[in-house]
Write a protein that binds this DNA or RNA. Sequence first.
DNA 1: GTCACGTATGAAAGATATTTTCGGGTGGGG
DNA 2: CCCCACCCGAAAATATCTTTCATACGTGAC
Lengths: 305, 305
Amino acid sequence: MTQEVKEIFAGEPPPPPAALAAKVRTLAPSMTRSMQRVAEAVANDPAGCAALTVTGLAELTGTSEATVVRTARLLGYPGYRDLRLALAGLAAQQQSGRAPAVTADIAVDDPIADVVAKLAYDEQQTLADTAAALDTVQLGAAVGALAAARRTDVYGVGASGLVAQDLTQKLLRIGLIAHAHNDPHLAVTNAVQLRAKDVAIAITHSGATGDVIEPLRVAFEHGATTIAITGRPDGPVTQYADHILTTSTARESELRPAAMSSRTSQLLVVDCLFIGVAQRTYETAAPALSASYEALAHRHRSTPR
Amino acid sequence: MTQEVKEIFAGEPPPPPAALAAKVRTLAPSMTRSMQRVAEAVANDPAGCAALTVTGLAELTGTSEATVVRTARLLGYPGYRDLRLALAGLAAQQQSGRAPAVTADIAVDDPIADVVAKLAYDEQQTLADTAAALDTVQLGAAVGALAAARRTDVYGVGASGLVAQDLTQKLLRIGLIAHAHNDPHLAVTNAVQLRAKDVAIAITHSGATGDVIEPLRVAFEHGATTIAITGRPDGPVTQYADHILTTSTARESELRPAAMSSRTSQLLVVDCLFIGVAQRTYETAAPALSASYEALAHRHRSTPR
DNA sequence: GTCACGTATGAAAGATATTTTCGGGTGGGG
DNA sequence: CCCCACCCGAAAATATCTTTCATACGTGAC
């Protein structure tokens, strides 16, 4: 039975995708009263109707199942089931269509769902901006220096301090020697130890954080290769930087401090550095990575499944 | 029968709209082999699967109808019928959205520019997935608990430790009392101090990190409100969590360890928590934020314009 | 290695949803 | 006023989805 019906329809162009409202209007005149009621309901509230069974829709429109099926057929579908699927698709499209509101700033009274959407959107934007603005030549040079370094020191305080630690963790994992310094004094005393071919990295969004600039200056003067990851390519920190990696600066608001987007941006740069270095030192990096995984395995409780 | 089932699900947030691929990845580890096959088929070809009946999909994946239904349930739908509708919606979105995707994996010999592009794209994807899959009800509850807490302890080791510190830094900035613990022993001894209305947060991608679960358990048993931020909503850690915030799991490769995308995902969740708390405690948060800016000002060298 | 246990799985029964059939009702024209 | 054609819905027939249950499989203990 159904098979036959499907054969018949297979000959025609496949059922319409989303131009349902139009189809309803076109076909309305040729419909009987009951069918018009069904078609109208479907056109007015695709999402709502998609949630209903034949019986439900029949009751809603004050008609019978048979009429609903007949309407579906008239609209070009093999049966109600397929109309319903199309309806669900249409609803989803409409849903996704209206989401431009996220560009607005985060307000104090935004519902939590909006906060999530806006934050995610903003951070995505920050990533795109950063990637677009990142100077691959500088990046490549920085990667080269890191891969060849005897040791690497990374300076960062506050939020940037966490990024510094993130980079350090990663480099250690692939067998390189790296240290993150939060303490400005210790950072300076350590910077004195650096020499040619060593690398020093300063991470500062403002480009003007004295606590970070100072150790970089010392490292620079001792002949180390210096890298600055900053949002201000013209800031004081760049005086002492051989390579400058620029992070993007997103607009901020009262509720959304700069630290948030700058952190996202800095982390992307750090990830790029890491992958770059891992590529260049693949021979040693790959086994080192595996080893670090295995070392961790026994610290995890056996997971169900 | 079905009625009962629907009642049960009515309590939970409605099934996800379009974040299906992400949900599949998150839940895949907790699935059985057969169910994974079904989930995979569904994630790879939503449109194709939407055209199939239970039986069809069962045959396609070489499993049984029962397994298909079970998978649909696991993904959060009352049954296959509803999964199918969601699939149709997803297909429609993809159709209109046109996702070109630089989905290729990062290779050892990729030029540095490609690395940047792929990493940025992947992290953007991770953000989108996380936002789509975040349970705003749980998030709201977590925010409420944080805003009302006498003190908050955050546990995390390894890469998650940095996320824990990030959250702590932020909470401190708006005048709340928060501590991050990397040291498992100290974490436990501190957890003992917690009591009702205090909050403990565990951050672990695997959901099975003993060093982090242990303090959370102690806090839980002392009556604190506990929150888990994890990529495995069924992992051991969730036993002791009043609220579960799920981070998304991106596919990983040799060069791109899981730590990378999980960190991105965790940070988004943390940011959402922070903004949510800042909203609720706006009266005190706003002046606290300004104060922290001013306190930092003199640590920055005057920036050349 | 072998045994016992818990779990995963598919076949088939059971419940729902969809489609078809069929006959009553309605309205327009003769 | 009667007849015809066609719209319409109740109910039967069918397809689809869901649940149950027995089996097989893998896993860990001994």
